[in-house]
Nucleic acid binder design. Structure first.
Lengths: 168, 168, 168, 168
DNA sequence: AAATAATCGAGACGGTACGTCAGGTCTTAAA
DNA sequence: TTTAAGACCTGACGTACCGTCTCGATTATTT
């Protein structure tokens, strides 16, 4: 992944470098997308997000973890091609949210629960849409356009969006 | 594009269906990405955006045009693979903003100019980041996750983001 | 063998159908050629050839037994590929005469002994060459060209050759 | 062919050594059997057989040309596997006589015509059966059993068979 | 009767070849 | 000069079998 990117990675080369037959790869993964996904995005991020006390602070932390996830070298190289391959197959497409966003969704839900209790947020926040927006922003900015992972990025994106959620 | 998606479209098939030699294709386009880009995203959207009088209204209109652009059948089928191919080559990657977002950027700039004059918005709005966020949200929601193009989507995304820009 | 021929027969399929592990096959036979040979050509033909009283009659009986051996369904399906595999390995090639022709050779030797005693044949008949010719004729006619096993075939081949051996 | 035999010859290796893509091979030949056949057995043997004046002499010449054809290094290495592959496919099997024996058949027919005119042979000689016998003898002796091509072989086989054809 | 050894089925494994496909370049003959 | 047609080299694909190997489970043998 790091050497040539998603497109240049071939099952045959992976097998050869692993000292393994191609069959052994195909026995465990159905193809390149599954293999790369598992290799790159399975380091379960179990760190508990801090309770910063404000919606904006919490949201910045969530976006920060997305930035971290999407800007890791292997991930950045893999993401566009990987998502394209998933999106090309209806069955795989349906799993994208779960695969890439389920930890973020849990965190986001917790963040909103706290915000509701503090009275900062309404109860009917459309979590999936917010998540798509956050992830889309990070993915497009880093993965597609290829901007460097600005240290301040998470804060700026979070700030932009938090206002639309807060109860004024 | 519409029949099999970006992955299933081959230069050979395009040439054959066009009753043309492959060379004739390569004489005009450097490869599949350029060909598909020009075929799908070149219907210059020249419609002038209405001046709705409010930042939120104007922004909704901009996001609406993005939704329209990204959810056209051929575009939705092409986008993920197309962006992945562009993103895989540094030279092409640098052109993504221009290619896909330049009309939207013009509009967005105009919208912000008006908002500044109305006192709704500060002068230093980071247009590119806002644009990445809007485009990312729309692309991820429609192109990747594959949600149907909700009629209300543009308004909801715009509403979410406009608050972060408005001067309170 | 009967279902798909020698080429379509795989050790794995044999093992599976036998409800046996592949190792169990390899523990008993060194590979496909040995396995098929033993399965198809080991039904020891112990029938004693009749003493017809003439060289031609005896020879017809010998050729007849060759025809019978080579035209059994499994044998006809196996022979070309089997012989090719044997012929490809020098050590196995050396065993072909013994494996496939030793019963016929015994009979042929006996037939010639009787013919010499009757004065029908010289003493220095080149048994191996005659045998190669008889076997080659039968194998080529049935196994390769694939002619149906004509009931009269043995007599016609024997008649053709007996004249060259008889003392005139 | 000469280096590893029919079994060790692969389309990929042929293509590589020829500096050619595999597709180019498959575009011209349907597979290994056709490729090897054309490479090894297409050097049309156009030499006119001499009219020796006797059936035995003529027949020796015909068998001699078969011996020559089947004992050329590439041919000897190819024949068993090649015939096995042809014999395994009904459509190809039907072509074996034509492919390998048609020049010999022409010669044999001419030889018999002359023999009939000289009164040495009956008119109803079963040419195909004689040819199968001659070819089978040569093939089995050289190709399968692997005997060295004895200089005298053609004469001995011809002598054995001519008697069965001659009118006595 | 318990401990040990041998044998087995299942099938994973590293290899190698298969035949197909698309990419992008090239050659040819006709327009 | 440009074109349609398609051959060409390259390299990856996903599949099939090879013969070896490692597993447990099941028998047999020994203690």
């Amino acid at each position: 992944m790091a050497e040539g990117g998603y497109g240049a990675l071939t099952i045959g080369a992976v097998a050869a470098r692993a000292g393994v037959g191609k069959d052994t790869i195909y026995r465990r993964w159905s193809g390149k997308p599954e293999l790369v996904y598992e290799a790159v995005f399975t380091t379960a991020d179990t760190a508990v997000l801090p309770d910063t006390g404000t919606l904006e602070g919490d949201l910045t932390a969530v976006v920060g973890s997305l930035v971290e996830e999407f800007s890791a070298p292997a991930a950045a190289a893999a993401l566009p091609g990987l998502l394209a391959d998933f999106a090309a197959v209806p069955e795989l497409r349906a799993t994208i949210r779960t695969r890439f966003l389920s930890p973020a969704k849990e965190r986001l839900t917790a963040v909103f629960d706290r915000a509701v209790q503090r009275g900062e947020s309404a109860q009917d926040v459309p979590v999936d849409l917010v998540l798509d927006t956050l992830a889309g922003a990070v993915f497009f900015h880093l993965g597609i356009v290829g901007e460097e992972p600005d240290a301040d990025l998470a804060r700026r994106i979070a700030a932009m969006i938090v206002k639309g959620i807060e109860v004024r």
